[in-house]
Design a protein around this nucleic acid. Structure first.
Lengths: 219, 219
DNA sequence: TATAGCTTTTAGATTTATCTAAAAAAAATG
DNA sequence: CATTTTTTTTAGATAAATCTAAAAGCTATA
């Protein structure tokens, strides 16, 4: 079993190593964990003894395959709890990180599988980040512009193309953010604008230009 | 702020002292916490310095008014999470204690107030224990036999009178347990039997004898 | 390639919560 | 009421995670 602190280190190493692809320096990890290089050295030694990281002195550190598994389960829990907080408790997506940071350490595989079911097996968190399954596998989804989505198909916003302030401000105003669920109700042929429903609640019309810049995935 | 361990000690002292009414011996507390008297002595000294317990050497310990507040908030969180686990995630009421024991330490007042709302402001947990409000106050509810409940009023099972095996087995079979929400739909005059709906889902008829032994509170 | 400068590790302390063993205080009993 | 028994506290150690300060190892460059 791993302590909260050990889990947080594994998660940080996983992220900083770009999903385990490159090794992480002690200093980079110290900055991420808001601690000193000395503390990081200590902890890496400990994790290495537990065989969850690969480590050689002065050569940086990376997650081992076992460590990657642990990190992915923590990430899975974090993201599922974020979905719960936003979808069920009506938190805004930018308020949930710190709470999920605590909830991710709750130990109970049954709890997580029941939570997953309760949330209807979401594939992305409210920030649009993918949620690994119980085996640590990310669903591969292809992102398409909203203009290419088939009518009456439920999708979820994954990214936006145009990250200019004006566009983001517009999205915020109409209530679209990453993770928002969108369905196309009708296409207005004369100008290509779309009548859509967001989060199964609010209906509105958006221009073809806006729709081209909203990337969605079938959810 | 209090550590998980400190919160657990305060909760244990609150319970063993019968809601703060009598002082608790070091040994009793050691047994409850599954630790040694020496560890308890240490921790009591620490809690005393933080002014959350009243303590004189060799005289036992009790929660101070500040400590009682802390304990009641932890108890509130524990019981709300139990309601969530049973009502929303379909756990059985006897599986939830250990998970709630972890969830009760999550720090976020906003989370708890939103959870409370999401659960529809429950007054009792799935074991029938009352849930203190945000000020640590227990709702005073009067328990009445189901036979005396007004029709179409939502109530919640608090206790049962007849604790014989046969009756408990019957309740289990029809899906009634402590915490179950019950509404009376109709009273059959000729034999006093009741048509009821439980948890806003399932309808059934129970005998007058059974109803007399089910104690409910307006929820 | 020698060395200055940065990174990393080690050494030694500190804090929190625990332990065992021993001492001190209180309670029970003859 | 003295003494045995039980309870409680103190003393000293341990393990986890952290810190500061100093030593050791890399690396870039002059």
């Amino acid at each position: 079993m791993f302590s909260f602190v050990e889990e947080n280190y594994l998660k940080a190493i996983y992220h900083l190593s770009d999903h385990g692809n490159e090794s992480v320096s002690t200093n980079a990890l110290a900055e991420e964990m808001k601690t000193t290089a000395a503390s990081v050295s200590d902890m890496i030694g400990k994790l290495s003894k537990k065989r969850v990281v690969d480590y050689q002195k002065y050569r940086g550190v990376n997650v081992s395959s076992k460590g990657k598994e642990v990190a992915l389960q923590v990430i899975r829990k974090h993201r599922l709890w974020e979905v719960f907080l936003v979808d069920k408790l009506n938190f805004h997506w930018d308020e949930v990180h710190d709470i999920a940071e605590q909830l991710e350490h709750i130990k109970s595989p049954l709890l997580i599988s029941k939570l997953d079911e309760f949330l209807d097996f979401p594939k992305h968190d409210p920030h649009g980040d993918p949620i690994p399954d119980e085996n640590g596998v990310f669903a591969t989804v292809k992102k398409i512009p909203l203009t290419e989505l088939a009518p009456d198909t439920l999708s979820q916003v994954v990214t936006v193309n145009d990250s200019g302030t004006a566009f983001l401000k517009y999205l915020d105003k109409v209530g679209i953010s990453i993770g928002t669920k969108i369905q196309i109700d009708d296409i207005n042929e004369f100008d290509g604008s779309l009548d859509i429903t967001i989060n199964k609640q609010k209906s509105l019309t958006i221009s073809q230009t806006a729709a081209q810049n909203i990337l969605v995935a079938n959810s």
